[in-house]
């Protein structure tokens, strides 16, 4: 198995925090690959009900890459924020690919996701991605918040700490973001 010396990861996080943009450039592929690998690893498991969800994957990636060594909260937070972003990217990429495949008549549709779960299908996911993009133009912080909560599975109190927000602001941002995104997505879905 690939051996992650977790030291570079923490070190990269540290450097990035201190303003080294190159550190982020080095860090992203590491995290991205780990997430993809984990996704692959779980998705292929024999029993679909045991597969982990994307949020769990983000956490697992964290555990595997940073491991048990003591890490400052800020580092963890940054890692999670990055991983959430990447998770979103991975999901969206594959939704796009699959949709392209479908047009060629090539891809099968998994029946088990047909149940009416919110944001379950590819098109919903892509619509959400678009809507998030638009939200980030109006309110970047809010879009980031949604990304960390939905794709990264971070708890609201943690996010409020990372973004330095009050509890009330967090509640407000979350409630209004849901409504706004929902409206945005149904608007784009109509035509």
């Amino acid at each position: 198995m690939p051996d992650y010396a977790s030291e570079p990861v923490t070190e990269l996080l540290q450097n990035w925090k201190q303003g080294d943009e190159k550190a982020l450039q080095d860090l992203l592929p590491l995290v991205y690959n780990e997430l993809r690998r984990l996704a692959h690893y779980h998705l292929q498991s024999e029993r679909p009900d045991h597969t982990l969800q994307s949020t769990a994957l983000v956490h697992e990636a964290y555990v595997r890459m940073i491991g048990q060594q003591p890490v400052q909260f800020e580092n963890r937070a940054h890692f999670m924020a990055i991983a959430s972003r990447l998770m979103r990217q991975i999901l969206v990429d594959y939704a796009r690919e699959r949709r392209a495949g479908k047009r060629d008549g090539g891809c099968r549709i998994g029946l088990e996701f047909a149940e009416a779960l919110p944001v379950s299908g590819d098109s919903e996911l892509l619509a959400l991605d678009d809507a998030l993009e638009q939200l980030s133009r109006i309110d970047e912080r809010q879009a980031k918040f949604v990304e960390m909560k939905f794709f990264g599975g971070l708890a609201a109190p943690d996010i409020s700490k990372i973004l330095g927000l009050s509890r009330i602001t967090v509640d407000r941002d979350w409630a209004t973001a849901r409504v706004w995104l929902h409206r945005q997505m149904s608007r784009t879905a109509l035509p």
Partner: peptide, 25 residues
């Protein structure tokens, strides 16, 4: 829009199920 909002919207994380095909890719 709030009235038509599904209570689970953005609450449940992206479903595990769709991972099947992700992994194949």
């Amino acid at each position: 829009a709030d009235d038509g909002l599904h209570p689970g919207f953005l609450i449940s994380p992206p479903m595990a199920g769709k991972w099947d095909s992700v992994a194949n890719g």
